[in-house]
Amino acid sequence: MCNHFSFLDGFLAFHLCNRVMWGPNSMKRLYIMSLKKQMQKNKWLRYCGSFSIDPGKRSIRESFEYAAEILREPGNLLLFYPQGQLESNHIRRIQFEDGLNEIMALTHGKCQLIWSSNIFEYFESSKPSVYFDMLDCGTGEDFVFESVKQKINAHHKNALDKHVRFTREKEVA
């Protein structure tokens, strides 16, 4: 899972997986859950392991079941954007849709949950720096949706604090 801030997120995730998770006795195949409207606009996505999800439609259940089937197979990796829409990579709080909870309820296995806060920053350079801050969120066996959301949001905020220069803001109650 990672924050969803650009069309390039899939390429960034592939790069990260290739560097960190690819190799003997590890990841076999990468799948990407993409919005149906993106799949219709970019037909080539289906050749890269993408499958569609259409929020608000009955077919969403089939997409969740397929995602769970992927995760039950050791060595498969599913790229999933839990906020379900594009947002700035500088947002302070990731707003989760219920998809992750639905998928994990169907998985029934030991799949590993990993989050990556992917942050672009230019500072004084004309080329951006990309920071990948990964977090082990446990397995499907010990999955508690609210707890995972809290861990990810705390991690994402720390990643932003570490990699982005902000004028310090006063905390609002």
Score class of each variant (00 low, 15 high):
163 H>P: 08
77 L>N: 02
17 C>D: 04
25 N>Y: 12
114 I>V: 13
133 D>G: 06
15 H>M: 05
114 I>R: 11
29 R>H: 12
74 P>R: 04
141 E>H: 03
172 V>I: 15
148 V>N: 01
24 P>I: 08
108 H>W: 07
5 F>W: 12
26 S>A: 12
171 E>H: 09
43 K>V: 10
51 F>D: 07
172 V>G: 06
22 W>Q: 12
20 V>P: 00
38 Q>D: 13
33 M>P: 01
13 A>T: 14
20 V>S: 09
105 A>E: 15
128 P>W: 04
16 L>I: 08
157 K>C: 05
125 S>P: 00
131 Y>N: 13
145 F>I: 06
150 Q>L: 08
170 K>L: 09
107 T>N: 11
159 A>I: 00
166 F>D: 02
110 K>Q: 12
69 E>R: 13
123 F>A: 13
68 A>K: 02
26 S>H: 13
36 K>L: 05
149 K>W: 01
84 G>E: 05
17 C>G: 09
4 H>Y: 06
93 R>H: 14
64 F>I: 09
117 S>A: 12
102 E>A: 10
63 S>H: 05
43 K>L: 10
142 D>S: 14
107 T>E: 15
90 H>M: 03
147 S>N: 14
154 A>K: 13
41 K>M: 09
102 E>C: 09
49 G>H: 05
139 T>S: 14
29 R>D: 12
117 S>C: 02
116 S>I: 12
34 S>R: 00
137 C>A: 14
108 H>Q: 11
131 Y>M: 03
51 F>I: 08
31 Y>R: 02
139 T>D: 02
19 R>C: 04
108 H>F: 11
34 S>H: 02
96 F>R: 06
4 H>K: 03
133 D>M: 03
79 L>M: 11
38 Q>K: 01
72 R>C: 05
39 M>R: 04
29 R>A: 05
54 D>M: 08
166 F>P: 01
113 L>G: 04
28 K>V: 05
125 S>V: 01
80 F>T: 00
127 K>W: 14
48 C>A: 09
167 T>V: 14
81 Y>I: 00
87 E>N: 10
3 N>M: 01
29 R>P: 06
101 N>P: 01
93 R>N: 10
144 V>H: 13
85 Q>Y: 05
16 L>W: 15
125 S>D: 15
9 D>M: 02
20 V>K: 12
165 R>F: 11
88 S>P: 06
165 R>W: 12
154 A>V: 12
120 F>Y: 15
138 G>V: 09
103 I>G: 01
119 I>E: 00
152 I>N: 00
14 F>M: 09
88 S>V: 02
113 L>M: 10
154 A>S: 11
99 G>S: 10
77 L>H: 03
163 H>Q: 07
80 F>R: 02
75 G>H: 08
131 Y>K: 04
159 A>G: 02
125 S>F: 10
142 D>A: 05
173 A>R: 11
16 L>T: 09
132 F>Q: 04
102 E>T: 02
167 T>D: 07
119 I>R: 00
157 K>V: 07
122 Y>T: 05
55 P>M: 08
112 Q>G: 07
66 Y>H: 14
